[in-house]
Simulated scan of single mutants.
Amino acid sequence: MWMKTGLLLVCLLTGCAVDTQQQRDAENFAQQSVEAGKLSEQALVLMHRGINGMAHRQQRLLLTRDSGIPPRQDLPLEHTVQRVAAARALQQYGKALRALLRQERTPEAAATFNGLLDSTQTALGMFLPAIVTKQIRAMGDTLGQRHYFGQKITQARLLMNAYQPAVTQLAGLLAEDFEPDGSGYMALYLTSAAELRNTAKQVLTGGQPGPARRQAALAALNDAEQAEEQGQALGARMVAMATALHAAQQEAVRNLEQPADAHPALDAYSNNVSHAGRVMQFLLLPAQGEVNHE
């Protein structure tokens, strides 16, 4: 009897009895956010490379060796940094939340909180309110301390409430970047594909292109059409994922405050992350399979 009571007391003090459905739901949201951030970063980098690759192919189709036109400059990587920071902030938010729920003690877990603040500042172009910054830094500093073991849910709820305005902004930034009909990176990627397609058609229908130039134009036309199709599909999935993030965040906070049996927003978020991941596997950029036809 005394042994069982002692074991129960030890378990409560160390937090081993706090693995509730409520915590598992929060961990699921955290993991989905990590994955959503990774997918977003990967897609942004691939689009950056694709935009540059398609621009160079278009220029090679247009220019002759004696044209005297200077080569086109790449889209600077700096243009992508702020966008990638939003994706990384989402990853670090999920990792920080997971670290609180699991009370991880590793230096990497503690550093995630500072990384979250840095990425958020870069993505939003502004500091978070001082009180929020102080709260988040303190969470990283005290991560894994014994007196927090019984307060995992409380700490997770504190982080989610403090960071909720930033989540809303990050979701908006990512949705804007991946909107095919918007003004972000996906729109620029699709415009680059359309320009390459049109140039390839002009080469094929105008005059008598030589065998090598005709082969290059045919390959460019095929790759551009493929890029447009895949970009539209990926954009739709990524926008759905970013939009679902906002609703899932709100539902996850409510669930920490008052557990519920059904989680439609969290389920939708998880499904959209999964769908986006599957589409990403088939994203083939012309720049990756480009052959030098000169």
Rank of each mutant, 00 (worst) to 15 (best):
G53L: 05
L188P: 00
L63V: 05
G94V: 07
A123E: 02
R49A: 04
G68Y: 08
N28K: 06
L90P: 10
K4N: 14
T64G: 02
L159H: 07
L101V: 04
D177Y: 09
M186C: 05
K38V: 15
Q73W: 00
K152W: 01
A17H: 10
S274D: 12
L285G: 11
R98W: 12
A85D: 02
R197T: 09
G235V: 05
L284P: 09
M47D: 04
R72A: 10
Q226H: 15
A247W: 06
F149A: 13
R146P: 07
A30V: 03
L124P: 09
R102P: 01
Q23F: 12
I69N: 09
I153N: 11
Q288D: 15
A110M: 13
V45Q: 08
G210H: 01
V132L: 07
G125Y: 14
T191G: 07
D19I: 01
S183H: 08
A233N: 05
L283W: 07
A26G: 04
A220K: 09
A109S: 06
P180L: 13
L101E: 02
A287H: 05
R65Y: 15
I153Q: 13
V253T: 08
V291N: 11
D267P: 03
N222C: 01
L63A: 05
N292G: 04
K95P: 03
E176C: 10
E290H: 13
A156Y: 12
T122Y: 04
R237I: 04
V167H: 00
A217F: 09
N292I: 08
Y148F: 07
R98F: 14
L170R: 03
G94H: 07
A224H: 08
Y189M: 13
L75Y: 02
L13T: 14
G68S: 05
A233Q: 09
A175Q: 01
S183P: 01
L204G: 02
Q230A: 03
M139V: 10
G50D: 10
M160T: 09
A265L: 11
Q73S: 01
R57N: 03
A86S: 11
S274V: 08
R65C: 13
R157L: 15
Q58C: 06
G37S: 06
D25M: 08
A156N: 11
T243H: 06
E104A: 15
L256D: 06
L90F: 12
A262R: 12
L256W: 04
G150F: 02
P70Q: 13
L117N: 11
T191F: 06
Q59T: 03
D25R: 13
M160S: 11
A30K: 03
V273W: 12
E35V: 12
L173H: 03
D66F: 07
A138T: 14
S192H: 08
H48V: 07
V203Y: 02
L221I: 02
